[in-house]
Simulated assay, not measured.
Amino acid sequence: MRPVPTKDGRPTLATVAAAAGVSVATVSKVLNGRSDVAPATRGLVQELLEQFDYAGRPADAVRRAVPATRPTVELVYAGELNAYSTEVLQGLLDAGQEMDVAVVVSMRRHGQRRSGSGRPSAWASELAAAGRRAVITVVDELTSSDLTALSRAGLPLVVIDPVNLPHVDVTSVGSTNFTGGLSATQHLLDLGHRRIAYLGGPATSACNQARMHGYRAAMDAAGLPVLPEYVRYGGFLHEDGLVQGGVLLDLPERPTAVFAGSDETAVGVLEAARARGLRIPDDLSVVGFDDTELARLSSPALTTVRQPLQEMGKVAMRTAMRLAADEEVESHHVELATELVVRQSTAPAPAVLRAHLASSGG
């Protein structure tokens, strides 16, 4: 049974209630997350809300129903907190404190259903009913259904380092990933490396593609081929660096340098190299990306491309609150500048170093 729509085409609470055999008040309690509803009844109502694709009340009505408190933003992480996301979180919290905005953190793994009610429309309605003013996601895989549901619920969205951009109007905050990839690879080229590998994140990730294109551009400008076996993908995690880095280092002609798409991946490469008796940076140079605390604490300290992660969090918060206030933003996509930070994990290529020692009588 489909609900009888309103004049604007949306299903009504009354028809959802009729289909469930409960009162309109009970459906309203489920939508507003009230606890005084029996689990079986709640499950039935949520199932029907999903079936009817009920998007909830208009955002203004929802906000009027919520007591006046500090504005609240929902921060959604795709996966577990790590060094990268902790830096972003610090920036968001700092900006929230400055603006007197509360931050609620939720997490989900890629592909996981967003809530007990499952469908994007129910997820967005629950956030709106709970009084959220905006949603910020970090490295999340968004679908068109997600965007539609958030829009219908009147919740502006800001994405930090988007995995994909399913719509041109998605507001996002990132960094100059292409320039970062270019500068990391150029640094290795300047040290005399010619066999340079790239170990990135998910192949479809927007930030990963930009970093890889920067790597390829530097190699092309130097007139060097990019060997297919020298380009590997993972998930920006330590385990990816350990496993995929091991694959690179076990090649018959292994690379003399690896540009990794994250600090966490780069540290995994360092471990894979040590397990094979390679010295860093004498036998292998490694460059990371992010400049998290992990880069500064690794041994040796990691040469990396610095993303202004805390500033990215602050910009995302300010942008989200401007959108929540129906203010115009200058750009739907903001890119903050990256910077190469040279530490102890990179050195001249082994052949260059041997030639230098021979010429100096070392």
Rank of each mutant, 00 (worst) to 15 (best):
Q310P: 11
L294C: 04
T303K: 01
L242N: 03
V258G: 07
M321F: 08
V247L: 15
M219T: 09
L309P: 02
V226H: 02
G245K: 09
A272S: 10
L278C: 02
L248H: 04
Q244A: 15
D250L: 02
I280S: 03
E239F: 06
G313D: 05
L237S: 13
L237V: 14
P225C: 10
D250I: 04
T304E: 08
L227S: 01
L270R: 00
T265F: 01
F236K: 00
E271M: 10
L242H: 05
L251I: 04
M321K: 08
G234A: 10
P228V: 05
S262F: 05
D263R: 06
R322T: 14
F259G: 04
G313L: 02
A257G: 14
M312N: 03
V247T: 13
Y233N: 04
A272T: 03
P225F: 08
I280P: 01
P252Y: 11
L237C: 10
M317N: 07
D290Q: 06
R318Y: 02
L242K: 06
Y230M: 13
E239W: 08
A275G: 15
L284V: 04
F236A: 09
L248T: 08
F236D: 05
H238L: 15
L323P: 00
S298M: 09
G268L: 09
E229Q: 12
Y230T: 02
L270Q: 13
G313N: 01
F289N: 04
Y230W: 12
E239G: 00
L270D: 00
T304W: 00
S298K: 12
G268I: 11
S285I: 02
